[in-house]
Write a protein that binds this DNA or RNA. Sequence first.
RNA 1: GGGCGCUUAGCUCAGUCGGUUUAGAGCACAUGCCUUACAAGCAUGGGGUCGGCAGUUCGAGCCUGCCAGUGCCCACCA
Length: 874
Amino acid sequence: MKELASVYDPKSVEDKWYQYWEEHGLFHSEPDGREPYTVVIPPPNVTGVLHMGHMLNETIQDILVRRARMEGKNALWVPGTDHASIATEAKVVKRLQEQGVKKSDLTRDEFLKHAWDWTHEYGGIILKQLRKVGASCDWSRTAFTMDETRSRSVMRVFVDLYNKGLIYRGVRMVNWDPAARTALSDEEVVYQEQHGKLYYLRYKIVGEEGYAVVATTRPETIMGDTAMCINPNDPKNQHLRGKRVIVPLVGREIPVIEDDYVDIEFGTGCLKVTPCHDVNDYMLGQKHNLPAINIFNDDGTLSEAAGLYVGMDRMAVREQIEKDLTEAGLMEKVEPYTNKVGLSERTKVPIEPKLSTQWFLKMSELVKPALKAVEDGEIVFHPAKFVNTYRHWMTDTKDWCISRQLWWGHRIPAWYLADGTVVVAETAEQALEQARRVSGNAALTADDLRQDDDALDTWFSSWLWPISLFDGILNPDNDQMKYYYPTSDLVTGPDIIFFWVARMIIAGYEYVGRPPFRNVYFTGIVRDKLGRKMSKQLGNSPDPLELIDHYGADGVRMGLMLAAPAGNDILYDDALCEQGRNFNNKIWNSFRLVKGWAVDDALEQPVHCGLAVKWFQASLDKALAEVKDLFSKFRLNDALMTIYRLFWEDFSAWYLELVKPAYQQPIDRATLDATIGFFDTLLRLLHPFMPFITEELWQHIGERADGESIMTARIPAAGEADEALLAAMAQAKEIVAGVRNVRKTKNLPPRQALTLQIVGALDSPCKPVIVKMAGLEAIEEVTEKAGASASFMVGTLELAVPLGDSIDVEAELKKLEADLQYARGFLATVEKKLGNERFVANAPEAVVAMERKKQADALSKIATLEQAIAALKG
RNA sequence: GGGCGCUUAGCUCAGUCGGUUUAGAGCACAUGCCUUACAAGCAUGGGGUCGGCAGUUCGAGCCUGCCAGUGCCCACCA
C-alpha cells in the first residue's frame, strides 16, 4: 500500500463510503426476527435548508441508530419532509409577489400548482444535505406529510374525530395573523415584550361637564368601542354609574357598564370595551349583551365599519389617531409603557384577536392517557425536567384551533349544502353520497356541494407521523406497524414539545392505544459562543455544509457532540470542530503507525508488550461497560468523551508507545494481532459518532468482502476488567510522570538513560512498563537513596533519580518541604475527623477504617519526607 | 403574576446513596520539545473552596430555609 499522507483528508472518503452504504442497501430495514430499533425523523420543512439545529439533531439520531444497528438490532430510521402549510405558503406568496403576481389573482388550483412546483424544485434539497452529514436513513421509505398515504390518513382521522364529536365548527375569538391572513393556534403565538405607550383618552360624559378617562394601549380600536366598563366597587368611579359617554372623535354614545373583572388599580379604573378585538372585551360583550363592531379587514387595515381611517393600516392609524386626539383636546396624556405583545410565530406581526368561524378539536379527554403515560414513565423524557413543562400544558389544554385560511395543506373534508347542512367525509364521492342520504335528495350532484375553503394546521398531519409512516391509520394491523411501532427514541427540540411531541403522544393513544415512542431526547438550542441564538440577521449562523467542507462531516459531528448534553443549549465555536478534526487526524495517524509495522513471526513477545496487551484489554473492557451505561442514559457527550480519552490517552499515548518497536525493528505476531484487534474495537466504538473515517480505516485493517461494512459489525460486550492490573498501571503511570517531571525540571535530555531508585520495595507487575516509558536504565530497590538525587513520592512510596553533582540542593529542599506541608495539612484533616468521638461512634466502620488507613499513610509519608529533608540538609 | 430549572477552574460541563485524597474532565493557558505515526503533535505544569448567608448532620459541592444572579415555560390585566 502506498505511503499515506500524514493528514487525514475527509473529502477523499466521505462521498465514497456514503455511496457504498447506499448501494449495498445497508440503511434499509425490513421486519425480521431481530429486536427492532426505530426512529422517525422530525420532518424538516420541505422547502428548508440544513441549519445548525438540524445538524445537531440529525447527528444525534444517526448516532443512536448506528449504535443500535451495531448492537445487533434491526435499526430503521425513516426520513421525510413536512409540507409546513403556513411557512411554505408564505414563501410561495412571496415568490409570486416578486414575479408581480398576487395570490388573490389566482384560483386555488393555480396557486397550488405553483406550490407543488416549488415543492418539487426545493423538496429534495434538505434530504440531499442529510446525506452529507452521514445520516443512515432508509431512503426507500422517504415520506411527505402531503403524499397520498399521509393525506388519506389525515382525512380518516378528521372524519373519525368529527364522528366522535371531538371536532366541531364554531364561532370563537381566535388569533388572527393579518400578514398570513389566517387563524393560528394558541401555540403559534409568541409573546414578546415591547416598548409602547399607554394612552389616556377622554370620553365626554353625556349630560354633564367633564370626561371619563380611559387608559389603553390600542387607541386605534376606539371605533369598535361599544361600552365603557368600571368596577362597581371602585370608589373613585361611582359617579359614572349608569351614565353614558361619547367615544372621542367618533362621537358615538356608549353606556357605562359595571363588572368586577375591571382592575381598579390599573390606569383610571375605566376600561373601554371593544368586543370584536380583544378576548376579554369579547367576554364582557357576551355577558352584557353589547353590540360588536368589527373595524378591521383581514389584512389589518381599517374596514368601512370603522367609519374613520378606512383602508389605513392599524399601525399607521395608531400614530395618526394619537395626533388627531391630541389636536381635538381628547388626549389626557401619553405614558411610556412596556407590555407583552402576541406575535405570529411565523410572520412575526402582532396578532389580532378576531371573531371567526373555525374548526376545533376538543382536547380535554384526549389529553388524559397522554399525560398519564409520561407521568408513569411509559414514555421517558431526557432530561426529565421537561416532564414538568409537559404536565403543566397537559393539565389545562384549550381546544385546538385546527383550521387555517390557507390553501397549501390538507383541505378540510367538510362540504356544505345550500341550506347550510354540513357533511364530513373522507372523499368528495363519499360526501356526495352522504349528502344525498342526509337530505333525502338523491338527485344532488357534486355541484350542489361546496367544500370548506380552509386547510388544516400543519401539525394536524405531523401529529400522526409515527403512525402514518407505517400506514397505521389506514391499515392498523399491517406487518410494518406491528414490527416497528412503538418507535424507540424521538429526538427533537423542546420548542416543539406542545406543537408536536405532546400531540403525537395523544394520537398514539387515541389511534393505536400505545405510545408512539419510548424515549424522547430533547436537544438544546445551538447558540453562538456568546450565547446568542443563531439568526440570519446577526450573521452568526454558520452553514453546516461549509463546516463539513472545512472540517469533514466526522469533525463537525464530533465537535457538536462534545458540547451537547441532552437539554443543554450548546455554545457553538469553530474550536469545537477543530477539536473534532484533530481527533480524526489522531486516529488516522495511529492507524498509519500500526500499518507501518513489519511483523516477525519468529519473535517472542516481550514482557512489557504482553503486559501492555493485558492492561489495554482491561481498559477497553471498562470503557465498553461505561459507554454502554452512558448510552442507556442518553449521555452521548459523556460516552464520546470516554471513547475520546480511551483512544487518545490510553491507546495512543500509553499502549501504542509501549508496544511500538524501535525504529525499523519488527514487531512480534502476538502483539501485532492484539493491536489490530484493539484498533478494530475502537473503530467500532467510534463509528456511530464518526462514521466515515471509521469505515475507511476498518476497510483497511482487514480483508473485507464487497458489501461488508463496519456499519453492521458488532460492538463487543464488555468483559470483566482486571481491576488489579488497572490499579498497578495507574501507579506505574504516576511513577513515569514523576520521572518525566524530573527530566523536565532538571533539564535532562529526553534520551539520557536514568536509574530510578525505589526506597523500599515495589510490588508491581508493571516495572517493565516503567522502565520503557520513563526511559530508564534500571530500577533499583534500595534501603537508602543516593545522597544527590531528585526525589518524589507516589502515594506512600518514595522514589529518587540519582543525579550526581548536578543536584540543586536548595530547589530540592524547597520541593520536599512543599510536599511535607501538604502531607501535614492532609493529616490534620484526617486526624480532626478521627479525633471526633461522634465520628468514630456514628460513621460506618468501613469509613472509619478508611480514615485510619489515610492517617497511617500520611504519617508514613511525613516520616519519609522528614528523613529525606534531614538527609539533604545533613 | 404563577411554575420549573440552573449557578463547581478563564470557557463548556461531570460529580451516583451525604463518607478514598485539601473537588474531576475536555478545551484554553504556561513551559520545554521539529523525539522517524501525528506541531491538527509530544511531555510537564499552574489554576476552583463548589453564587451568598444560615441550618440539619459525627461528616455537606450533594439535604433544608432565606437571599442574590440567571435562563426557560405558562398566564386575558386594558
